[in-house]
């Protein structure tokens, strides 16, 4: 029984990782179509570096992710503070709209934002993409920060008020320093969501501003592209290296 269990778990992991490992292996395969092993090569990696389109798209992806995560962290934190600190007209609607973002299927949010941008005559590109990414990251920051705030002793805020702090100082001197870990977690989550998004980006950006998932999409739709294997390998390894690095760093710190 134990053996069956181990075998089953192993098979699931094989299912999860086989496609990725095949991809990584193909990225070093000299054969263009990847049907046969024709020896080691790094030429697909060189091709990425030489491809301005891909490099541009990669940089754009990072710019959008960084800006969207940062702005979502700022606005989301303010949103969480609003919900935590104050009673105001429309608070229920406020919560409802956050819920709508989280529950809406990507495709529904994508077309609704597209409709908005078209109606307003906003050019589909950098700006529309950034605004959209901020929007879908927002509720995740709000929830992360809000759950940290609700863990506080509410007397801390009252103490600050009692000692003469106005709303701004309560936020800047008390709430923000204490909520910082949650704000950073929200930023990280937003960054991941932004990099990972395909559907919303597909609708709200145009040829003037291409990001990596869309570039890859248009490449692979037209057939096998070995440099995509190389790119995928890199994109897979970056977070893995990053996380294992921080994991060992944390372990080191503990011991």
């Amino acid at each position: 029984m134990r053996r069956v269990k181990t075998l089953y778990v192993a098979l699931i992991y094989l299912f999860l990782y086989l496609p990725i490992f095949v991809l990584i292996a193909s990225s070093f395969n000299a054969s263009k179509y990847g049907t046969r092993w024709e020896g080691w090569t790094l030429k697909w990696y060189y091709q990425i570096i030489d491809s301005p389109l891909l490099m541009h798209a990669a940089i754009n992806t990072l710019i959008i992710a960084f800006l969207a995560a940062t702005l979502a962290a700022v606005i989301g934190t303010l949103g969480a503070v609003s919900l935590y600190r104050w009673r105001f007209a429309g608070k229920k609607a406020f919560e409802g709209l956050l819920f709508v973002i989280m529950m809406s299927p990507d495709i529904v949010m994508a077309i609704s934002l597209l409709a908005l941008f078209i109606a307003l005559g906003i050019h589909l590109g950098f700006m529309s993409l950034l605004l959209s990414h901020i929007t879908f990251c927002l509720p995740f920051v709000v929830i992360t920060v809000y759950s940290r705030l609700s863990g506080f002793d509410s007397a801390l805020i009252e103490a600050a008020r009692d000692l003469g702090a106005g709303e701004w100082h309560v936020f800047y001197r008390i709430i923000l320093p204490l909520a910082m870990p949650a704000v950073l977690a929200g930023w990280l989550l937003s960054f991941t969501l932004s990099v990972d998004d395909v559907i919303v980006s597909f609708f709200v950006t145009g040829p003037s501003f291409e990001i990596l998932p869309l570039r890859i999409y248009s490449m692979v739709r037209l057939g096998v592209k070995p440099e995509v294997n190389a790119l995928a390998t890199i994109l897979f390894l970056i977070p893995v290296v990053f996380v294992s690095f921080s994991y060992f760093l944390l372990k080191e710190k503990k011991s």
């Binding site: 990725i20 991809l23 890859i216 994109l235």
Partner: peptide
């Protein structure tokens, strides 16, 4: 952590 499009491509 890898973009789902890339995972689709891997499949």
């Amino acid at each position: 952590w890898t973009n789902s499009l890339i995972r689709t491509y891997a499949i």
